[in-house]
Structures are given as structure tokens and as C-alpha cells.
Amino acid sequence: MKKLISKKHWARGESVAVADDGEHTSNIFRIAGNTFGQSAHRECLAFLVPGEEQAGFEMAVSVVVEGLRIGQLSKRDLIPFRAMLQRAGLAAQVTSCDAYIGGGGTGADGKKQRYAISLNVDWFEA
């Protein structure tokens, strides 16, 4: 996924959280660039990569930054994303948007905090 090309960059709009099941934490850490204990504050470009639809299953949409998968759109956000692609005439094309990676530091209790990844995208701009 190193050489993704976006067919469209979406305008900034609402903040949409990226679903992360913990499987991609090492990728997020590499991209966030924070040192152990520090919180990340990184703005970056995210690619939205639709998977293939299978009968009876919703299409998963991977979120990729710097060639690394860092999560996916939540099920709640798949409907507006599909509508957005349809309106733009892009079907299952790779698109991009601005993203933010925060968190990942150490809390007051000494425990490692989860990363928070959000996309800044206007679901209704075609």
C-alpha cells in the first residue's frame, strides 16, 4: 500500500473517529512519531481504501497513512462514505482526507494511553 493514488481529496468538515481494534498499534506508533511516554500530536494525510463488497457483508474501508494501515472506518460511517463515493462518481476508488493522530502518551496513573485517530472530512461535499 505504499504507492496509493487518491482520485479525490475530501474537503475538511466534521471529525470522524477511526475504528482501531488494537491490531495496528505498532503502525500508529511508527507514524505518530512520539517518543515513549509523550502524547502524539500529528497531522497527516490519510487514504481511504475501500475493500471489495461480499454478498451479505458491508464493505470495509481501510485507513492508510504513509503506506501503513492504521484502522478502518466504523460501521456507522460506512453509509455516508458509500453515499459520498456514489455522489462523486468514484464507486470503489481510493480517496484521501486530512487526519490527526493524538494520544498514546502515559496517563497520570502511569498507564499507556490509547491513540486517538480522527479524519477531518465533509461527508456531504461531492
Rank of each mutant, 00 (worst) to 15 (best):
G67K: 06
D21F: 00
G107T: 14
G67Q: 04
E53Q: 12
G89R: 06
G110N: 13
Q54Y: 05
D77T: 05
G89L: 09
L45H: 12
E43C: 09
A88C: 13
M59T: 15
Q38I: 10
F36S: 14
P50C: 09
S15N: 12
K2C: 05
I5F: 02
I70A: 03
S15K: 14
K75C: 05
M84L: 14
T25P: 00
R12F: 08
G56Q: 08
N120R: 12
R82Q: 15
V18T: 03
N34M: 07
A32T: 04
I101K: 03
E23T: 11
A17C: 05
G37M: 08
D109E: 11
R42M: 07
A108Q: 11
G13T: 07
M84G: 00
M59D: 01
N34R: 08
R114H: 11
D77I: 02
V18W: 00
C97P: 04
I28C: 02
T95C: 13
K112M: 10
K7I: 00
N27E: 05
D122T: 06
C44R: 01
R30Q: 13
S15V: 06
R12Q: 13
D77G: 03
R82H: 10
D109V: 11
G104K: 04
L68R: 12
A108Y: 13
G56P: 08
N120H: 14
T35L: 11
A126C: 11
A40L: 08
A88T: 08
L119C: 10
Q93E: 14
